[in-house]
């Protein structure tokens, strides 16, 4: 059993609108799984199906080897994109209530809340009402409530929206820590920087279909184009560019540098290798900059969606 969660061939239709068609994902244990896709692709529907908020028309979800049952909600922690708390309820009471709904006993919930409130240094908020707190403060409470019952599976839908950079970082670190402590995280977003930093695996959903999934590293390898970005310091730029383009496929590059360099993107064909290129370049000019272009998640995202016809 390497997968904590498997969703097998899930389909869901709302009226005439196909929200998901035949989507399968496997979320490995102790990983951070990025569920990506443009707005309206079906991410939230899939997440709601995993949370048993919506029932799928077809397909099944397996959690830790068992078909999903109502009692599994206590093993799942869910931070929805549309989130909030009761505005006129006190922080402490509210957190206790939500924790008890997740199956914790009163005393256990209280103990764990004390721990978290101390850790995040928010103990003095206990008797405040949510409406007295700022949005960022309320988000922190929300995060604590999501992870309090120590779920095996954590699902975050756009977790960083509404956080300032400092708090976003804090939460990011907590997510990584939770992963290291053994939790599995599904993380839905369309912000690619955070995918880059956090995710081990990704699945890309577009117009109700899954169009890409796998380990982020593997996907990156598959998408790289063997292109190198170089910066060369030389007097006669056009002559050198001419020379290089006789051997390689060359295009103009744009990056920041200190010197007035000749900046090129050089694409290698299968018969070339990077060492040869470097040797060739150093024989002709002074190499200031040499870097393989690895596609970032954002490029892969946009490219894959374009390839799938949009």
């Amino acid at each position: 059993m390497n997968h904590l969660l498997e969703a097998n061939r899930i389909s869901k239709q709302f009226g005439n609108f196909q929200a998901l068609s035949d989507v399968s994902i496997q979320v490995p244990k102790h990983s951070i799984f990025g569920l990506l896709g443009p707005n309206g692709a079906g991410k939230t529907t899939l997440i709601r199906i995993i949370n048993q908020i919506t029932m799928p028309d077809k397909g099944e979800v397996v959690l830790d080897g068992e078909p999903l049952k109502p009692h599994h909600v206590q093993h799942i922690g869910y931070l929805p994109e549309e989130r909030g708390l009761y505005k006129s309820m006190k922080v402490g009471e509210q957190a206790l209530y939500l924790a008890q709904l997740k199956g914790l006993s009163y005393s256990e919930a209280k103990k764990r809340l004390n721990y978290w409130f101390e850790k995040l240094e928010i103990g003095h908020w206990w008797n405040k009402k949510i409406e007295e707190l700022s949005k960022g403060m309320a988000q922190k409470i929300q995060f604590v409530v999501t992870v309090l019952h120590q779920p095996k599976l954590l699902i975050f839908d756009e977790p960083f929206s509404g956080f300032d950079p400092i708090n976003a970082n804090l939460i990011k670190d907590e997510i990584l820590k939770l992963r290291d402590e053994g939790a599995t995280v599904i993380f839905s977003t369309h912000r690619m920087e955070s995918v880059e930093e956090l995710c081990d695996h990704i699945a890309l959903i577009h117009q109700s279909k899954k169009i890409l999934d796998g380990k982020l590293i593997d996907i990156k390898k598959a998408h790289k184009t063997n292109t190198f970005e170089v910066g060369l310091s030389i007097e006669n730029k056009s002559e050198l560019k001419q020379l290089i383009s006789e051997r390689y496929h060359v295009s103009t590059a744009d990056f920041k540098s200190l010197e007035d360099d000749l900046k090129l993107n050089i694409k290698l064909e299968p018969e070339h290798n990077s060492q040869q290129l470097l040797a060739f370049l150093s024989s002709k000019a002074h190499v200031n900059h040499y870097k393989e272009l690895i596609p970032n998640a954002n490029d892969i995202f946009i490219q894959t969606i374009k390839n799938n016809g949009l």
Partner: peptide
């Protein structure tokens, strides 16, 4: 109120 405060989805991930 539960809808406007957006708490609803948090709650129904725990209860029916």
């Amino acid at each position: 109120e539960e809808k406007t405060s957006r708490i609803i989805e948090v709650i129904i991930s725990s209860v029916k």
